[in-house]
Design a protein around this nucleic acid. Sequence first.
DNA 1: AACATAACTTACTTTTAGGTAAGTAATGTA
DNA 2: TACATTACTTACCTAAAAGTAAGTTATGTT
Lengths: 126, 126
Amino acid sequence: MAEKQESYQNGVLATLAVMGGKWKPLILCHMGAGPIRPAELRRVVPGISPKVLTDQLRELERDEIIERHVYNEVPPHVEYEITEYGHTLNKVLVAMSSWGEDRIKRLQDKGQTVDLVYPEHDGYSN
Amino acid sequence: MAEKQESYQNGVLATLAVMGGKWKPLILCHMGAGPIRPAELRRVVPGISPKVLTDQLRELERDEIIERHVYNEVPPHVEYEITEYGHTLNKVLVAMSSWGEDRIKRLQDKGQTVDLVYPEHDGYSN
DNA sequence: AACATAACTTACTTTTAGGTAAGTAATGTA
DNA sequence: TACATTACTTACCTAAAAGTAAGTTATGTT
């Protein structure tokens, strides 16, 4: 590992550039089951503000992780869907989820309360 | 995956709570080869400020990812070392590194310059 | 006696990610 | 004709993260 330090780092950083931040991992967790509308995402990702959700979705779209489908209807109808490329992120999400689950168990075994795990949701209750 | 949404999320969030942020992944990338002193970390992680490095190391220590060894000498001598538990994070780092490397190749194949990959280093040149 | 050293701590200031609020579009319903 | 709907956009504001700068410690070297 000592010889490959730099590329090791760069890969990690490139990944964080795409799926880092407070909301992107949560959003991606809810996009595996198929196309989803922003309103539904707001419902299942409690606490996210409409603006930030839009921002994050646009960035994921720009990075080709998700696709935006617009249906020309009134009221507007938009769906976001993970791309084929986006699905390759699953390995990372699964590795993170798995380690995190283990950590949660660890903390619970030590009698510690596991906070900080889910962003508070107050406001934007729907 | 649809039924396990929430725990999937929580695992990811628990992981991000420990190794998220701008510097922690980089720091961890440089700690696989054995104990390392803060001054050396400042050298290999260009751009990090002394205070932020200290902050990040303390958090990693609090989360039992690394250990702090103090040698009572003058001038002070401190070493940080990954714990056994900390080493379990490697799977995550490797998954992220691997995905990120692939992404870098993808971008290069499309003729795009890969920026944002490494924090700028100006100031604290040593 | 002044200076260097390593690893801090304290007390700020700056940056940036995230949050709030108000407005827009186009149409259907009360 | 007023209001509701969805998915925004624009403009502004706040809080958390990161950065800067100036001590502090105890000893050894010049």
